[in-house]
Design a protein around this nucleic acid. Structure first.
Lengths: 245, 245
DNA sequence: GGCTAAGTGTAAATTAGCTGACATTTTGCT
DNA sequence: AGCAAAATGTCAGCTAATTTACACTTAGCC
């Protein structure tokens, strides 16, 4: 009942935002991303780069297919996963996008051969998007932003390389531990050594992220639970002592 | 004997280059990289971005450690591999750098925690380098270059992601086939469907690249040889019909 | 030319982790 | 409340690939 009340409040809040300060909202939504902090209000507004704003709720699938004009997206709220379907029909989790992350064709190259979609994991998400071409113009006019953006893309690359290295040299257990540590680091609420993570992933999702089968992930998670390293349920994950992972 | 003669000639050639047109050489070495084509002679010269030029021969190990000022490198000639040593002392091949490739801290972020070195694979290599800070300045002054560079980094990322996907979903055999196809594509000399690749890698190198054990790689290569898909030796790899891979 | 080290060939034992095949639990929905 | 679907738990059998272990071959060097 309490949850429902809050939901109503949020809705109300959104309506106010939408109807009374939509222009400003656009602005702030980009503005509070670290990449765009160096830009002035007028720069963002003037360039008019926000051309889309979308809300969606849990389980929804969002296609950002290549048939459309190429876009870059910014996840303002919630969590989504990017899933790729390969030729054999296998689904792979390409990425987990969290609040504040940019996603889409970050390389600024349109490539239409990959079949990808996004699936909403949290209760609801809001996404804003802008045209890749507009963004390119903006980068051309703001070398500092271009440099930041390059570093940003580079950081993403470094993360991927890191995962890659883990995948090669470490076993499933180590990968799970590493994943949990990373997750805790990024989103966990710390209280001393105890960390609580809001769990919007299924065990299957986790399995896919650390590149193992669902069964193996389940086994490992249960093993951790019996060793009291973890308290897992569908809503949250409690790690009593993060240093023990 | 013929090889030696050519080597002498090359040396002579280098000396001429070095003593009579070193400034121009610097220029051209960067100039003929696709990234830098948009820049004028004066831009490259004026910015004075080449601050290093180095030659090395087979087997040599080049450290580009973080103790030094951060640099970006351009491999002008030959092939090298980038090897990372992790905490457990395991060596992993991070990258194979081919003629014309940029390498080093492409993300423009100095990160000193990783222990990496480069090992020369081909008979000899020449490498030029410039300071990361100079490069950043250049990017700031040339938004078009910055954009190209971002796309370039993005492309690298995409390749890595692709490898990652292969590693996850395909078995060692498929990965080897894919690797050979890629290699042939990049460096092979085609003659109809026959491709000849100059082989500067050991089977151990190949194994590491496709993330398997040396023994498995050997077995697979021999299997391919008995199936007449391949003719492997230490100097070159002949693929009689690339379409059959 | 002969020695050493690096690279290659081969095979058996072992194993991590996948597959498939279920039972059980939880969630969302009408 | 009751049902279907999704998520989780568990286990036996199987398989690809690693490990270990050793023989052989080639390349580089004094």
């Amino acid at each position: 009942m309490k949850g429902f009340f809050i939901y109503e409040l949020k809705l109300l809040h959104l309506q106010i935002e939408t109807y009374f300060m939509y222009e400003d909202l656009k602005y702030w939504y980009l503005r509070d991303h670290k990449l765009f902090r160096i830009l002035s209000y007028s720069q963002i507004k003037q360039l008019c780069i926000i051309t889309g704003f979308k809300k969606a709720s849990k389980g929804e699938i969002i296609y950002f297919s290549s048939s459309d004009v190429p876009r870059i997206f910014l996840l303002k709220k919630g969590n989504i996963k990017i899933v790729a379907v390969d030729d054999d029909g296998n689904e792979t989790i390409k990425d987990i996008i969290q609040k504040g992350d940019l996603f889409g064709e970050l390389t600024l190259e349109t490539d239409n051969k990959v079949e990808e979609y996004a699936k909403v994991l949290s209760d609801d998400v809001s996404i804003c998007s802008f045209l890749m071409s507009d963004f390119e113009d903006l980068l051309l006019r703001n070398p500092t932003l271009a440099l930041s953006y390059t570093k940003f893309v580079g950081l993403k690359m470094k993360r991927i390389k890191n995962n890659y290295a883990n995948l090669v040299s470490k076993d499933a257990k180590t990968r799970l531990y590493q994943f949990l540590k990373d997750w805790a680091e990024q989103e966990g609420v710390k209280n001393g050594n105890t960390v609580i993570i809001e769990n919007y992933l299924t065990q299957n999702d986790i399995a896919q992220i650390i590149c193992t089968s669902r069964q193996t992930a389940t086994q490992l998670l249960n093993e951790m639970e019996t060793n009291q390293l973890l308290d897992y349920n569908r809503k949250q994950i409690i790690i009593p002592d993060i240093t023990k992972l």
